[in-house]
Amino acid sequence: MTKDLATNKLPVFDLVRCKQCRICAHFCPKDCIAFNDEGDPYLARPEACTSCRMCEYMCPDWAVSLEAPSEGQPDIEAA
């Protein structure tokens, strides 16, 4: 299976850039990405994420980037 070379990085969503098109979730092979009531994406299942980066590559607004998770809060939604 896909294991990213820069391991342990998880997607972080820039909600200022995000236009809520949901293509990130479409291309997520593990269905890790969900949307809150406002329609904003968040990483719902960080443990399942393989850091494959398809969300980052497909995002038309450059709103997804893969970053090393901050201490103890791997699933935090980026502001």
């Binding site: 299976m1 896909t2 092979p29 393989t50 980066r53």
Partner: peptide
């Protein structure tokens, strides 16, 4: 090739 990280 890679099962996931490839052109659609």
């Amino acid at each position: 090739g890679d099962p996931v990280r490839r052109l659609p």
